Amino acid sequence: MQIRPARKEDVPVILELIHDLAIYEKEPHAVKNTVEALEENLFGPHPAIFAHVAVEQGQVQGFALWFLNYSTWEGVHGIYLEDLYVRPEARGKGMGKALLRTLAGIAVERGYARVEWCVLNWNEPSIRFYKSLGAVPQDEWTTFRLTGDALSSFGSPVVSGGAA
């Protein structure tokens, strides 16, 4: 097994794994991403996301997609893990752990304050896995999200001359 930064030629299989993750998370039709968009975001002139892949016998078996966040209290960056996924047939070989260890190593090497992510409340196998690594749930926080019509409505420009 090898963990390495993703390459352009990995993008189609990473997108395939993103679709597999969506199925696992009971949202099979939620993925709107494309090979072109993912490639642009990972390898375009101003990449804001990064990915590492787990490779076994020349085949990508898993990935971690991440980006930088920032702690205003600590005054340093952190890593936000957007997705971590290993194919079911490749699980139990330490790939997920190796991918997370790679991100933790990057954080330590660069002086970042943390590596953090979200996990669905029903995903007990993942929760047990993360706790076994020493990760601690942030139970005192609730994630909020603006999307769809609510985002469009709230983010629409304010008409000039109106009350603020």
Rank of each mutant, 00 (worst) to 15 (best):
L17V: 02
L17P: 05
D20S: 15
A22R: 01
A22S: 13
E25I: 03
K26G: 01
K26S: 03
E27G: 07
P28C: 08
P28A: 11
P28V: 04
V31E: 10
K32Q: 07
N33R: 15
N33G: 14
N33Y: 10
T34L: 09
E36L: 15
L38F: 01
E40G: 11
E40T: 10
N41W: 10
F43E: 06
F43N: 07
F43S: 07
F43W: 04
G44E: 01
P45A: 15
P45Q: 13
P47S: 10
I49F: 11
F50N: 11
V53A: 09
V53M: 11
V53R: 06
V55R: 11
V55G: 13
E56R: 07
Q57V: 05
Q57A: 12
Q57R: 09
Q57H: 06
G58W: 05
G58R: 08
Q59N: 06
Q61I: 06
A64Y: 00
A64C: 02
A64V: 01
L65D: 01
L65S: 06
W66S: 02
L68N: 11
L68D: 07
N69F: 03
Y70I: 06
T72K: 12
E74I: 15
G75R: 03
H77F: 03
G78F: 08
I79F: 14
I79Y: 15
Y80D: 09
L81V: 04
E82W: 08
E82L: 13
D83R: 07
D83E: 15
V86Q: 13
R87G: 01
E89F: 06
A90V: 12
G92P: 00
M95V: 00
G96E: 01
K97D: 00
K97V: 00
L99P: 04
L99I: 02
L100K: 00
R101M: 02
L103D: 15
A104C: 14
G105E: 12
I106N: 07
A107L: 06
A107G: 08
V108L: 12
V108R: 11
E109M: 14
E109V: 09
G111Y: 02
G111I: 02
G111P: 04
Y112D: 01
Y112W: 09
A113C: 14
A113L: 06
A113K: 11
V115K: 13
V115H: 10
W117S: 11
W117G: 09
W117Q: 08
V119K: 00
N121E: 15
N123C: 12
P125F: 09
P125N: 14
P125I: 12
S126Y: 00
S126F: 00
S126Q: 01
S126K: 04
I127T: 03
I127Q: 08
R128A: 08
R128T: 06
F129K: 03
F129A: 10
K131Q: 14
K131A: 14
S132Y: 01
L133M: 14
G134T: 00
G134A: 02
V136D: 07
D139P: 05
D139C: 10
D139K: 12
E140F: 07
W141L: 10
L146F: 13
T147L: 08
G148I: 01
G148Q: 02
D149M: 09
A150W: 03
A150D: 09
A150F: 06
L151V: 03
S153R: 15
G155P: 05
G155W: 00
G155N: 05
P157A: 13
V159C: 12
V159L: 15
